[in-house]
Write a protein that binds this DNA or RNA. Sequence first.
DNA 1: GAGTCAAATAGTTTCGAAAGTTTTATAAAA
DNA 2: TTTTATAAAACTTTCGAAACTATTTGACTC
Lengths: 228, 228
Amino acid sequence: MHYDTTDPYTALRNGLIWGRWKSGERLSPQHLKEELECTSSVLREAMLRLAGEGFVVSEKNHGFRAVAHSQETFREAAHLRLVLEREAAELSIKNGTFDWEMALSAAHQKLAYVEKQMIETQDATRYVKHWSLQDWEFHSTLMSACGSELLMRAYKSAFDTFRMYAVAEFPNYGFGQAVTAQEHQDIYERAIARDVKGCLAAIERHVTLYKNGNRTKVPLPGKSSDTL
Amino acid sequence: MHYDTTDPYTALRNGLIWGRWKSGERLSPQHLKEELECTSSVLREAMLRLAGEGFVVSEKNHGFRAVAHSQETFREAAHLRLVLEREAAELSIKNGTFDWEMALSAAHQKLAYVEKQMIETQDATRYVKHWSLQDWEFHSTLMSACGSELLMRAYKSAFDTFRMYAVAEFPNYGFGQAVTAQEHQDIYERAIARDVKGCLAAIERHVTLYKNGNRTKVPLPGKSSDTL
DNA sequence: GAGTCAAATAGTTTCGAAAGTTTTATAAAA
DNA sequence: TTTTATAAAACTTTCGAAACTATTTGACTC
């Protein structure tokens, strides 16, 4: 019924991001080859690439493991996000064209729509993957006019680490009801208004709330979904 | 006479950093296997890892290439260095212990020694690799008390990109006689004095001078050396 | 001479077996 | 029972050949 069109590398990468394998878990090409429908060699190649990207660690003659995240790693990722996002957002607000404004408006609209659904249906779990994807799209669009490919790459890396931990440790990947929606709204409005100081402050509030784990205490009811 | 004890991965990585292969050059495992004394398979594995790290790019069925750096990439790397180094230096200055002070003092001493040699002998080329290594050690020691492994990793990545371009495009990897030495001296003194504002300003001067390529116009005489 | 096609060549990726390493299991000795 | 030594099993890495893909060459046509 459902053909898996994704290559082993992508399947592995997504599995790592979305918690298919636990932090620090062994990744054996031999055992995973049935599940991912390929030979152990191509899995090995994919894992080597992912090792370079930091999703996987490898020790000589001991194979591969999903990278182990601690709460400390999470704090560092949040901090790095903050530093990079503030810099990139400031540049974007200063340099962004009208096209950027439109893109940001669209990204925010999509994100707000998901968040509205999550709150109204009182069923966050059903939408968390959509939400997490739109969360990324919003933040990266916000930064997209900063003019530095390298800065964006560094941010993506920090964001991925951040999200891996959130997916593994927080019931709803960190979505915390109305709070997040308002925070994103604030960031969006101040960015469009070209209010650098206000926007940076909003970003700081947003990421800091996460970091302190405030959201873990408000799990919402609902059953899991694998729509994505 | 000289046994190469480094594995193919390290050899490739160093070759990429130190300009053994030009920006954008094809890296064919088949052809490189003689030079690096291994089979094409282990070279492929090394390249896959380096692809993940961003030193190498690969396109399906087209093999590998050394990553292509433009002047724009260089500017972005310099900018990212600045952003990350300011943040980390500030944290280090605020949190650094006496051990950190000692380590920084030692790192600066070594760097200053190399720079003194370069200036006195009027033969920069002979010491550029030493200098580049000590330059890294000084900057990373300065940041080492920031308390964030992730931030240091992101910085290293930006530094490597920065250096690859400098090695390829500048006669002396960017060393510019007395200017650099004085800059490092400034950064060092202000860090030890726990003068955050002064140190950050010194860092900004240092990296900005590089970025504008001011150093390219003062090549020093002397012949090449492969001591390292 | 320019353009098209097919064959030949060169290069890349995948594969599964061989070689090498670590871990587990088993048996002998203290 | 604990320790040490040895053998077996499980796994990781390396290897070279096979399969596959891209590029070049050269013959043929317009």
